Simulated assay, not measured.
Amino acid sequence: MKREIKFRLWDSKSHEWLIKGEDGLVENMVCCDSWDMFDPDDYVWCQYTGLKDKNGRSIYEGDTLKVTGVDGGSYVASVRWFSDEGYPAFDLGSIPETSFYGANTLATIFQGGVETCEVIGNIFENPELLEAEK
């Protein structure tokens, strides 16, 4: 199976997406003769995980998910790329200890089919979603 490679790009200075949407359309374009005209550290690239939430919405790195079990209990966690920790995979950060799987939580959720995930925001536009869970 071929995995779709898509990105969206967050501008941390203007606080808006330069590349957004389900199809990865470029909403705004920075055109310049030289890369010296802007600082690449002002931009955050968020990669598509290859997964879709319960509503068919693409899940990207930096998204905030609501994970709901069959019992109706839920928690909120963010999608992260864990390569800096020697773990090259997308997974959920800041999950409750009671929801620990001993393996990749995101993969376990999607393979098990017992819980559902819904994108409810992202860490850039909605940081309060994660704060409310602490």
Rank of each mutant, 00 (worst) to 15 (best):
L18Y: 09
I19H: 08
I19W: 07
I19T: 11
I19E: 13
D23I: 00
G24I: 01
L25Q: 15
V26I: 03
E27M: 07
E27A: 12
N28F: 13
N28H: 15
N28K: 15
M29H: 06
M29D: 12
V30T: 12
V30W: 12
V30L: 15
V30S: 10
C32I: 00
D33K: 06
S34L: 06
D36M: 03
F38R: 08
D39F: 02
P40L: 07
D41H: 13
D41C: 09
Y43E: 14
V44M: 12
W45R: 14
W45A: 15
W45S: 15
W45V: 15
T49N: 10
T49Q: 13
T49D: 13
T49K: 05
G50S: 12
G50P: 03
G50W: 01
L51S: 04
L51W: 03
L51Q: 07
K52T: 03
D53G: 09
K54V: 14
N55V: 06
N55G: 05
G56N: 07
G56Q: 06
R57D: 11
R57F: 03
S58H: 04
S58R: 01
I59P: 00
I59D: 12
E61Y: 03
G62M: 02
K66T: 14
V67N: 01
V67F: 01
T68Y: 08
T68N: 09
V70R: 10
V70L: 14
G72W: 06
S74Q: 07
